[in-house]
């Protein structure tokens, strides 16, 4: 039986966390609310109070400066989708949003809500992990920062505490050179949840040397994984020395981190094989975007 709940609106982050504190653990945040409404209808969550934060327009932004890209938690997937021509990293994130749910859901769903839902198969999360993003979490005591990697604590579990609110995602941009990223996934029809996915972000310095490699593996563990050993295997190489074979090796190292399960969408074996291919293709794509020839 679906729970009965009352509805409240918060106009600011402070108001939202005050309401959370007031109503206790069964009060739940609705950002766009698409996941929440679904989970409530499926009786996976039983809120007694819905705190709607859609009016918090101060968290609805996408900003770029020299240090990086800031995406407010309340930016909708649709606005991220429409930010493609503002930065090449936003182009890549925009392409990801086009894979997410339907256009009708993207208008309502938010970046913050998507992250807080913490689905292991989420599309943006592996890219954010690969891009070494951090998140800002608001509470009555002030804001704190957490790396994207540490943000996810399990299936539908995050670092956000009972009286806290996700405020912003920050994607750092390199001081020297440029970062290029890519995301690949296995899906069935044009609207689907990823069966498995992989993302790579490659920074190349002005000296033509790969200075930083980030990887994100999705739907192969309860949380998004990275693969520091695989990243290290590529870092320090000159862009011009990168070969397909090398990228295949890096992807193979990274894929070893995966601990996939079998479910209705795919078997563990298929996920294990495909995550490697997704990572390899993401790496190839990132290298190509840098102008590297493979």
């Amino acid at each position: 039986m679906k729970s009965a709940f009352t509805y409240e609106r918060a106009g600011s982050p402070a108001e939202a966390v005050a309401l959370l504190a007031k109503h206790g653990p069964d009060a739940m945040i609705w950002a766009g609310g698409t996941d929440m409404t679904l989970q409530w209808q499926q009786e996976k969550v039983s809120p007694t109070v819905c705190i709607d934060i859609r009016d918090i327009s101060e968290l609805d932004y996408i900003e770029i400066d020299n240090s990086g890209i800031r995406i407010g938690a309340m930016a909708s997937l649709a606005s991220l989708e429409r930010s493609a021509d503002r930065h090449h990293i936003l182009t890549m994130l925009s392409d990801i949003t086009k894979l997410m749910a339907t256009p009708q859901t993207r208008t309502l769903a938010t970046v913050g809500g998507n992250l807080c839902n913490a689905s292991p198969a989420a599309d943006l999360s592996p890219a954010f992990v690969a891009l070494d993003a951090t998140v800002k979490i608001f509470s009555a005591l002030g804001a704190r920062k957490v790396s994207m990697l540490d943000f996810f604590k399990g299936v539908n579990k995050t670092e956000v505490g009972p009286a806290e609110l996700l405020e912003e995602v920050f994607i750092p941009l390199p001081d020297d050179g440029d970062v290029q990223a890519s995301y690949k996934r296995i899906d069935r029809t044009v609207v689907d949840i990823a069966l498995v996915n992989g993302s790579a972000a490659v920074t190349v310095g002005s000296d033509g040397v790969i200075s930083k490699v980030g990887l994100g593996l999705g739907a192969v563990a309860p949380i998004i994984l990275n693969a520091p050993d695989a990243s290290a295997a590529l870092e320090g190489l000159k862009l011009s020395d990168v070969t397909r074979e090398k990228l295949a090796k890096v992807a193979a190292i990274a894929a070893k981190h995966a601990k996939p399960i079998t479910d209705v969408r795919a078997s563990a074996g298929y996920r294990q094989d495909m995550v490697e291919i997704m990572l390899r293709r993401s790496l190839e794509d990132s290298i190509s975007k840098h102008g590297g020839t493979l």
Partner: peptide, 24 residues
């Protein structure tokens, strides 16, 4: 939110009304 049959426009934007609370 999969089939889109319940799509309505909210402030001119398409939304699946089955995934939106009336109060929203």
């Amino acid at each position: 939110g999969e089939c889109g049959s319940c799509t309505v426009l909210v402030d001119n934007k398409p939304m699946t009304s089955c995934l939106m609370l009336a109060q929203q």
